[in-house]
Design a binder for these strands. Structure first.
Length: 357
DNA sequence: GATGCGTGGAC
DNA sequence: TGTCCAAGCAT
């Protein structure tokens, strides 16, 4: 039904566009170096791809710089402490990525001599590397003709071929298209070209069809439905959950924090002791007996699947206070930036209240 | 296949 | 304000 001439026309139109418009990004090597046969560092490609999962380039850049400055190689990262890595990842979200990042670095160091596997199948066996990331690293770092499929590619291909099936049901069909369109020449550039196109031209809302290199090939454009694709099955509304966090400040300035369990929400991250978060009013459950008082300002935060409204309770405790959970962290070494964002918001409320007195 | 898992920016 | 969305993965 779709002939290979059309397939070739896609990469033939996209690669020159990419050569002109490719963004200079910290994990990319320049076009001249690439033309000389130089390849990007697989460690940097892998690290960037993990950070970019469901995350924008703008949000990733600073984190990428900090990680590569602190841990320049996969071997260096493998030797890092868990808490160091989690603290450095704080604020970026999806914290299972950070836990798997470290597992993956240690597996590469221990089982692969510090060298990343250079095939899609080899990469796929590593923690945190799924179908997308295996294909992306294989294509970008090792120039393998892997069919890269992410949200951008889904959108670009759904429009290019006017796929009307809603996501996620359309994924197999789109994956097959992605495999077939991937060219044998410069597959790494091609993969990045499709994703760049999706990020900058073939955007979810108001696609810039007027400057699109694929405009003459695009069926959705011809039908006048580009902005309506891809179709998606509607999502469930988010419920609102309620909770309480307890911020205890000791007489020497130390603050009471606990490391959350490795699995689940904010797994492995530091946080303030608190109640469960549920749709019913929380049961008061302070970590240490004290004169707790309400900070008066609620923290509001939205996670992937629920809204949260958090009461913030504050207390000053004495040097001999013995909490039933968590541990005091000296104020000199405690960095609010090492907290996940919802916990940092609670800190901001407490710090404001304490500054008043 | 469905669900759980963060965050910040655009509109 | 709310909603949608981003270079997904694990279970």
């Amino acid at each position: 039904m779709r002939d290979s001439d059309t397939d070739d026309a896609v990469s033939a139109a996209l690669l020159p566009w990419y050569d002109r418009h490719a963004r200079a990004l910290p994990w990319r090597v320049g076009p001249e170096a690439l033309a000389d046969g130089e390849r990007p560092d697989p460690y940097r490609v892998w690290l960037s791809e993990i950070m970019l999962q469901q995350t924008t380039v703008a949000a990733v850049k600073e984190y990428f710089h900090r990680f590569t400055a602190r841990w320049p190689t996969v071997t260096a990262l493998a030797a890092a402490q868990d808490a160091e890595v989690m603290a450095e990842w704080a604020g970026l979200g999806y914290y299972a990525r950070a836990r798997n990042l470290l597992k993956c670095a240690r597996a590469v160091a221990a089982d692969h001599g510090g060298i990343f596997p250079d095939t899609e199948d080899g990469l796929r066996t590593l923690p945190g590397i799924g179908p997308y990331t295996a294909a992306a690293v294989a294509a970008i770092a090792f120039d393998r003709p892997a069919g890269v499929m992410d949200g951008n590619v889904e959108r670009v291909l759904a429009r290019l071929f006017a796929v009307q099936t809603p996501l996620p049901a359309a994924k197999p069909e789109l994956k097959a298209l992605a495999e077939r369109l991937t060219p044998g020449m410069r597959p790494g550039c091609y993969a990045q070209a499709v994703m760049d196109l999706g990020a900058t031209v073939c955007t979810p809302r108001s696609p810039a069809c007027g400057i699109c290199p694929l405009i003459t090939l695009c069926r959705a454009r011809a039908l006048g439905i580009a902005a309506d694709l891809p179709r998606k099955t509607p999502k469930q509304a988010k419920p609102t959950r309620l909770g309480i966090v307890y911020l205890a400040r000791r007489a020497d300035g130390a603050v009471l924090l606990e490391t959350r369990p490795d699995r689940g929400l904010l797994g492995g991250m530091l946080g303030w002791p608190g109640t469960d978060w549920a749709e019913t009013a929380p049961q008061d459950n302070p970590p240490v007996p004290a004169r707790w008082h309400d900070a008066g300002v609620e923290v509001r935060h939205t996670f992937t699947h629920f809204h949260l409204r958090l009461r913030v309770l504050l207390a000053e405790v004495t040097l001999d206070a013995t909490p039933d959970r968590g541990a005091f962290h000296p104020r000199a070494t405690f960095r609010p930036a090492s907290l996940p964002t919802v916990m940092r918001k609670a800190w901001d409320v407490a710090a404001g209240a304490w500054r008043e007195h």
